[in-house]
Design a protein around this nucleic acid. Structure first.
Lengths: 332, 332
DNA sequence: TTGAAAGCGATACCAC
DNA sequence: GTGGTATCGCTTTCAA
C-alpha cells in the first residue's frame, strides 16, 4: 500500500536551488515580506520556479515558526446549520481564505466529540453564544489567544442573535393581523431545549406586553396523532394563531389543522421560524422568520480578521437583522 | 488589547526541568513510546508535572516532526448533514479523537470556499462519492497521502451509499402495497440536482422492472400553488402513489393532497426519503427511507484509521444499510 | 538587494 | 533505563 505521494514534497530549498538564490530570498518573495526589496527579475524567477515545481508551503513548519495556526474555529449549536447559513458561511470562508485563514466549523456541543480547539490550535474561536467558564478554561489551556464573544463580557444567552428577537417578531406579526388569543407549539425531545425555552419565554413576554392571551406551550411530539390532538385542543380553546418553534413544527401544525377541516389562516394562522426551504415549499406556504445570514457571515469574517490580524472593525455588532417573511399561512 | 495567553506556553522542556530529567525522557513517557523502559517512578513524576503545569503539546511542532497532521478531512455534499448523520459523525469524531486524530468536516462543493485540504494538510481526505480528477490533483499537490474512495477505482456516483438504493426501496415499498401507477416528485431549484436525477433514474428503472407505470417526474417548485397543481394533475391522471425526493417534498405533497380533499394514503400514498425528524412529526406521519448512519459513522472511523495508521479493516464496504420506515402516509 | 543563521517544539535515532 | 541531538521547513533578525 504505497503512499500516494511517495516523492518528497518540494520545499523552499528546492526553489532556492533551482533559481540559484538563498532560501531566505525565496521566503521573502513568497510571503511578500514588506520592507524587503527584491528585484523584479529574481522575484519573477522565484515565482515561476515555485509554480513550475508545484510548491506548497508546509503548514506545520510555518505554524511552528510563526507561532500561530491561521485557523479560525467556528462553534455552532447543532441545528443552526442547514438553512441559508450554510451558504453564507461559505462566503465567510472565502473571505478568510483570501487572508490566509482556514475556517473550520464545529457543530454539536457537550457530550459529543472533544472540542476541536484542543487539537487544532486555532488562533481564534468564535461562538454563537457565550462559552461556559469550563470551555474558556479549556481554550486557554490549549493556547487559544482570542475568544469571541469575549469571555467575561456580559453576553447573555437570550441576547445572542436569533435567540429571542425572532420569537418577538412572530408575536408582533400575529398581533398586527388582529390575533388576540394564541398558543405556542414546540418540539418534544429536541436537542435544542434551551433555545426552545428561551424563545418561548420571549414570545410569551411579548404577547403579554401586547395584551394578548397565551393559552400555553404545547409540545408536538414525535408520536402519532399528537399534532392532531393539539389542533383539536386549540380549536376548542378559541385559539386563532400558533407560534411554532420552527418550520417543521409549523408544517406539522398546518398539516394537522387542514386534516381536521380547519382553514388556514382563516380558522388557524401559523407562523414558523428559520425560513427553511420547507417554508416556501409547503402548501400553503408558511410565514416564517428569517435572519440575515449573509450579513452575519460578513460580520463573522470581519470579526475573525480583527481578532486574528488586528484589522479594524468597520461596523459594530448589532442584533442580527431579523424579519418576518409573510406568506399564506398567516395572511391568506 | 493584550493576548489572552500572554504567558509563554509550557513546553516539554519545562517539564524536564521541573522533574529533573532530560526532555527526551519526557517525550518518551508522554508518547508512551514503545520499546522504552521508563521506571514507574519517573513516569509518574513526569505525568504529574505535566498535569500540574498544564502541559499541552504543540501541534505544529509535532506535525512538523512526524510529518503528518493527524487531521482527517471529511467532505460531504451540502445537504447530507442535518439529519441523524450529524449525531453519528460526532461518534466517529470521538473514536478518532481517542486515536489522536481530529475529524474536520467540510460541506459545500465547487464554487464555494477553497477546499480545506489545501490549507489543513490532512493525512486523509474522505468523500461521500468519488472526487473529480481536478480535486484529486489538487489534493496530491497539497500533499494529501490518502484519499477515500481511492481515485481510479471505479466507484460510480450512483453506487455511492444512499444515492440509488433508497430510491429503489421507495418503489418496492409502493409496489408491495399494490400501487401500479406512480409519479415522482422532485424539487425545483435544488443544489442537489445530480443526486435528484440519479435517484429519479433509479426509481424509474426499478418501477419499470416491476411492471409499474411511471407517469413522470414533476418538480414541486418554490412557487405558490405548484404543489396543489401537481396534486390535481396526478389525481386526474390516475396516480395512486408518489415517490418524493425527500421528506420536505413528501410533506408538501401530503399537505397539498389533504387540502385538495384527498385522503392519505387511500387516495394518494406518499413516501419520502432521509427520514428527517419532520417525517415522524408530520400528520399523517410520513413513510420514509432511512440509512443506518450509525453504522456509516462507525465504518468511517474505521476506514480513516486504516488509511492513517494502517489499522486493519475489520469489515468490508457494503452498500450502506438502507431501509424503509413505514408510516401512515403509505400504510394508513 | 541578498544571504546566513538562529530559533520554533516535538520526534526519534543512537549512544551510554 | 536514560540522555544527547539531528531533524522537520519555514520565519525573521541581523549582517554584508
Amino acid at each position: 500500500m504505497p503512499d500516494l505521494a511517495a516523492a518528497r514534497r518540494v520545499t523552499a530549498v528546492d526553489i532556492a536551488k533551482e533559481v540559484g538564490v538563498s532560501r531566505a530570498t525565496v521566503g521573502f518573495v513568497l510571503n511578500n515580506t514588506p520592507g524587503k526589496k527584491i528585484s523584479d527579475a529574481t522575484r519573477a524567477r522565484v515565482l515561476d520556479a515555485a509554480a513550475r515545481l508545484g510548491y506548497q508551503p508546509n503548514r506545520a513548519a510555518a505554524d511552528l515558526a510563526r507561532g500561530r495556526s491561521k485557523i479560525i474555529l467556528l462553534v455552532l449549536p447543532g441545528r443552526l446549520l442547514g438553512s441559508s447559513l450554510q451558504a453564507s458561511l461559505d462566503e465567510s470562508a472565502r473571505v478568510l481564505a483570501e487572508a490566509g485563514y482556514a475556517l473550520v466549523t464545529q457543530t454539536g456541543g457537550p457530550g459529543g466529540a472533544p472540542p476541536l480547539w484542543e487539537t487544532l490550535n486555532p488562533d481564534v474561536v468564535i461562538g454563537w453564544t457565550t462559552f461556559t467558564d469550563d470551555e474558556v478554561a479549556s481554550m486557554r489551556l490549549a493556547g487559544v489567544r482570542r475568544i469571541v464573544p469575549r469571555p467575561g463580557e456580559s453576553a447573555r444567552y437570550d441576547q445572542a442573535p436569533g435567540v429571542s428577537e425572532g420569537a418577538r417578531m412572530q408575536v408582533d406579526h400575529l398581533h398586527e393581523l388582529g390575533h388576540r388569543r394564541i398558543a405556542l407549539a414546540s418540539l418534544a425531545d429536541s436537542q435544542m431545549l434551551e433555545l426552545q425555552r428561551t424563545r418561548a419565554e420571549a414570545a410569551v413576554r411579548r404577547a403579554e406586553d401586547l395584551g394578548m392571551e397565551v393559552v400555553g406551550v404545547r409540545a408536538v411530539a414525535h408520536a402519532d396523532g399528537s399534532s392532531a390532538d393539539a389542533v383539536r385542543a386549540w380549536a376548542a380553546d378559541g385559539v386563532t394563531a400558533i407560534v411554532a418553534y420552527n418550520d417543521d413544527v409549523a408544517a406539522t401544525v398546518a398539516g394537522a389543522a387542514i386534516a381536521a377541516g380547519l382553514r388556514i389562516p382563516a380558522d388557524l394562522a401559523v407562523i414558523g421560524h428559520d425560513d427553511s426551504p420547507m417554508a416556501e415549499l409547503f402548501y400553503p406556504p408558511l410565514s416564517s422568520v428569517r435572519m440575515d445570514t449573509v450579513e452575519a457571515a460578513r460580520y463573522l469574517a470581519e470579526v475573525a480578521l480583527h481578532e486574528a490580524d488586528g484589522r479594524p472593525l468597520t461596523s459594530t455588532w448589532t442584533e442580527l437583522d431579523t424579519y418576518v417573511v409573510a406568506r399564506k399561512s398567516t395572511t391568506g
